[in-house]
Design a binder for these strands. Structure first.
Lengths: 225, 225
DNA sequence: TTAGAATTCAAACGTTTGTTTGAATTGATG
DNA sequence: CATCAATTCAAACAAACGTTTGAATTCTAA
């Protein structure tokens, strides 16, 4: 009826669905977000999600892929650059950590949508659904492999298993930190919701991660020192 | 029809529901676990949950409370003991960390059910549901307050906000680590499923946390050193 | 302008969800 | 043994879920 535009272009419908779905997934979780909530908020027909994406599961994957692909791409790019700068020599652990964690932190600090996505991604790691589990394994396979190799070259004296544990811990710390984890947020009083929270958090998290990475390994008896 | 016992005692029905619910919640998440799955696996009638607990939400809270109450109780007990041992003087940060994190790690290492519960608890932190959020805030209020105070007394030179950030990071690292986070588990190759995984993880995590806690604070410009 | 593909739409599909009901059964107490 | 409360049970409830359908509409090209 409008003189200018009476309906959305096909691509605009897609991106509006993706934007709204990301916001709702982040706010309520995948299961608690219904197709009717998504299409309602997006102002599109209920059948639009199935038409454009096939199913709700496919939409979930598409929402995650949209920003995760570029994110892991820039992680690999950063590691490539660091290795090139090192010229054959192993890259320093701190540089590896920095190149792995600066991309997501910049994404989270860059825009509201970026913060929203990282919050969603942090929650996604704890999703037990096989579909999401398989998706994450596929998406992270390459980047984790590259960084594991880089760590092993940088710390040849440290057993691989120890490196994997620390990588696991670091991923968990960042994941929870950017996810906000509202409960802990309220408990600790740290406000992750504010727009500039990520800028203030990033250097603190990076320092914490490097401190953890450099911590002395526990002896065979479990004693720390 | 059995000569020995034809039905369950009322309390046995309750605990069987709690046990089965905990296992299913940990395996599939709260939303993806239906009342019919719970009552079916427990071998009780569908209406039993509503009769004994009132609602599914109430069952969720009861499952969490059952082990979280004693867990946070022993945390406070450990801090009490540490403060008594210090006799008026501030408790060393490493001792505070140890007293906070050793209880959950022991719980996770003690039994399959303990590991299962800690895995569930780790996932619970990322649940966006208001009901769970409010529940966690209430349950953690006291213990977080006590430990925050202890940290502030131990590190008077460090601003409160910095302490809260680090507490937040440490909680995230442990939470993710014990939750297993199957995706990362597969990616990093770290097997958290095995029975003795927690015993091997605990000292490594503790060392990592202390390293992060002791890391240098970033300067006002965000530089680490 | 017209034919055909792409997209939108309202309506309904069959399932599954958590919860409730009222009768049947069990356990404890007198 | 009789009584009453506690518990279990099969059955049904309304509501919400993801998905499908076929017609209506819009867009694209010839």
């Amino acid at each position: 009826m409008d003189a200018r535009r009476t309906s959305l272009s096909a691509n605009e419908t897609r991106t509006r669905i993706l934007d709204v779905a990301q916001a709702l997934f982040a706010a309520h979780g995948f299961d608690a977000t219904s197709m009717r909530m998504i299409t309602g908020d997006a102002g599109v027909n209920l059948a639009a999600v199935n038409y454009h994406f096939g199913s709700k599961d496919a939409l979930v994957q598409e929402v995650l892929k949209r920003h995760l692909r570029p994110l892991n791409g820039s992680r690999i790019q950063a590691l490539d650059a660091a290795e090139a700068a090192a010229g054959g020599a192993p890259v320093k652990p701190s540089v590896i950590v920095e190149s792995f964690f600066s991309s997501p932190l910049e994404l989270a600090a860059g825009s509201d949508a970026g913060r929203e996505f990282m919050r969603l991604l942090g929650r996604t790691f704890t999703e037990p659904s096989p579909m999401i589990r398989d998706f994450l394994v596929t998406e992270y396979e390459e980047v984790i492999g590259r960084y594991r190799e880089a760590f092993c070259r940088a710390l040849p004296a440290v057993p691989v298993e120890e490196i994997l544990w620390r990588l696991h811990f670091m991923l968990g710390a960042m994941s929870h930190a950017v996810a906000g984890v509202d409960s802990l947020q309220v408990l600790t009083g740290v406000k992750v919701d504010e727009p500039d929270a990520m800028q203030r958090m990033a250097p603190r998290l990076m320092s914490f991660l490097l401190g953890g990475l450099r911590a002395p390994l526990p002896g065979p008896d479990g004693r720390i020192e």
